[in-house]
Design a binder for these strands. Sequence first.
RNA 1: GCCAAAGUGGCGGAACUGGUAGACGCGCACGACUCAAAAUCGUGUAUCUUCGGAUGUGUGGGUUCGAUUCCCACCUUUGGUACCA
Length: 853
Amino acid sequence: MADYSKEEIKRIEEKWRNEWRQRGVYRVENQSDKPKYYVLDMFPYPSGAGLHVGHPLGYIASDIVARFKRLKGFNVLHPMGFDAFGLPAEQYAIDHGIHPAVSTAQNIHNFKNQLEKIGFCYDWSREVQTCDPKYYKWTQWIFLQIFDSWFNRAKGKAERIDELVKIFERNGNVDHPFPNTKFLVPGLEKEVFSASEWKSFDEKVVQEILMQYRLAYLAYTDVNWCEALGTVLANDEVINGVSYRGGFPVVRKQMRQWSLRITEYADRLLSGLGQIDFSDSMKEIQRNWIGKSVGARITFKVKAEAGEQKNLVVFTTRPDTIFGVDFMVLAPEHELVKEITSETQAGDVEKYLKYVESRSEIDRMAEVKKITGAFTGAYALNPFNGREIPIWISEYVLAGYGTGAIMAVPCGDERDHKFAKHFNLPITNIIGKHYNGVEANPTKDAILENSDFLNGIVMHTAIDVVVNRLEEEGIGKRQVNYKMRDAGWSRQRYWGEPFPVVYHEDIPYAMSEADLPLELPKSNNFKSAGNGEGPLANLKEWVFFEPGKKRDTNTMPTHAGAAWYFLRYADPHNDKEFAARKALDYWNQVDVYIGGSEHAVAHLLYSRLWVKILHDLGYLNFDEPFKKLINQGKITGDSRFVYRIRGTNKFVSAGLKDQYETDPLHVDVNMVTGLELDTEVFRHWKPDFHNAEFILENGKYICGAAIEKMSKSYFNVVNPDDIIENYGADTLRMYEMFLGPLEVSKPWNTNGIDGVFKFLRRIWNLFHTTSGEFLVTEDEPAPAELKALHKALKKVEYDIDHYSFNTTVSELMICSNELSSLKCNKRSILEPLIIALAPYAPHITEELWEKLG
RNA sequence: GCCAAAGUGGCGGAACUGGUAGACGCGCACGACUCAAAAUCGUGUAUCUUCGGAUGUGUGGGUUCGAUUCCCACCUUUGGUACCA
């Protein structure tokens, strides 16, 4: 009786969703005889805009994998949750006066409703929300574990801070020098102290020293300060000198901030890439971000005019070019600048420093190629032959990298070369014919000339020769540098995890576990408290909760909650531990993680870091969180434009727009069919357009088109609910997979959706007579039928391992076509077919399965 | 600039390790059903062609009996990055 009609689809899909929910069929236990499999989606930030058709792409893929593995006999963990702390909710609160907790809860509710309709097999009993105190209690707890540890370089792993205290009590810090010599401890004269000195230090000095070692530490650091947002941003939240969100200017500012010492893990984060299955480009992005470079630190003596001897230390990856050094360059902020500048050059240097100070980050970014600098009047001496080398200062040398000073080799380095040409400095050629006098040549294959004891040696072998000599003579040593900085972990924001520490005499102490969570206090004031302090600083009673004690007024970044949520899913309701060890050991690493590539440098690095630290401290038996990562492509929007003739309410069709002076306006894609605008609907869209006039071509108004990101403000958002309303969730799921390879970005269009819908109907019709009666026979299968079936089954199995879902859909279509033309309605063929189809189209297959009995 | 990935019909895209290029779907054309239309079903559909064939996977070369696939150079697009010594 039943057709695969709109009404029938709605009935079937609702029926099964209710059934699944009521019977709790997707609830999974933490123990089983079956092998485990963990399929994870990057949990979404619940924005107010709701879900668009781009969001479910990855979720559908992971759902197919989860359902497939379950059918294959695995105990599958497939959870979902919400990354619910964050800036947009707070910005929304400022703009609309709605508390972030309220808008976030509302948004999560909407997201869940939308997700529910797509028929995912999530175990919702394991849902996590990062803004839930029961959850962030453990975010805070993990933060305290990080605070309570240091990185033992000798062992290459994190240890408890009391281990370090024991070492100091025995030997002082001779074997474990300060990780970063730039942060000096007030009241401590030298960088090395003995055991007896350690015991003589007062509490303040002791705590300051330990702070220099902690993996979560407080320090005055240069941060990216965004005045408009009133907060500090991480490096990855700043793009071209403006904020990632909003595009506001960002300046450098010194503030006392929490940081995570991720730099200590640079090498392990790098080598760990070898054990995990991420795409090559993803690994490359992480490698570039970490930016390891191997070279040497070389000490040049500064030619003394009078007084004490000064040294200038540089970092270089090319020690082999030491005899080609024609000048030195210091960063303008370098501490030596003031000490070495000669009287005659003082004016020039002063002027240049003023100029540098006047330049904003954006100016510097915009004029990267502009060559500026000033001569200090001082000279350095080449450590091998004593040649006098002029010392310059210039912006192109960055204070924050290496030693903030370089040895410049113009014949081999492009920037040095341009600098030399610009200021007319002599250029020594050490690479013979490889240098043409016009352009620097960074080759490592040249045979060295004009290079003293290196003459006649090929450059790449000369590197070792020089470094050995430097080390022998005590003028330099091997050194590895990283581009990656420690991760700023404080945000001057309300809607985040408060830091679980209490300040006493300005020293932060960890709160005890029993007092966690430190709940975010209720407040309706989200404005920053001024001078760099966040909104929490407005709550005096909360901040100064006891005489002599003070809380931190910052909150953690969104990355904090997201850095470990995949661990919580193993045991989400535990209130004694962040997750029971047994559950963690059982579910272990995420087998497949599906999400966008935009998280390459932030979320994925922080997650890897937290897991490594927890592993080192003995809480986990694995040290990489994600075995395999798949990056689904973005689904972009296909925008439509109308062209308004400037200063009028007349709109001209795209083909004729060049005859007028026009401004393009986005129009809602839902009022355009193909490229043709429904002018009546357009007139009613906004009051402004009520009296709009149109200049048509061939009786039609043709719109312009562009592929852009899907966004409310471009009116190009397609809501999955509308697709489900018209075709059902099964068609949406299959169509999103059919659209193309999972990992490729592609524009959304519904051009092909009918084909997918027809396929499902054909499947339905195989089980039904033309009059709609359910009819399946017990007849023996024919060879042609078996061949069609097994060809498809083979493809389904093969493709799932290659995440090639689009070709599976094609293959299933071929199979259904063949069976349809063979008029096959035999149980022995149809039963295996719908099992293979089940992960893709769970509703229709459940229905047919039930009818099969 | 540097790093990475990718360029295949009118469109989205197939082609597993070098072996019949264009699967599957859309679109289009024709046909069936219909008074008609829609829907549905069927057939055809890379390009050129003197109907023999010829040419075709961004461009130009190369390796090979054979190349969408491997190598070199270039062009274009997308993503990452931004003076990192």
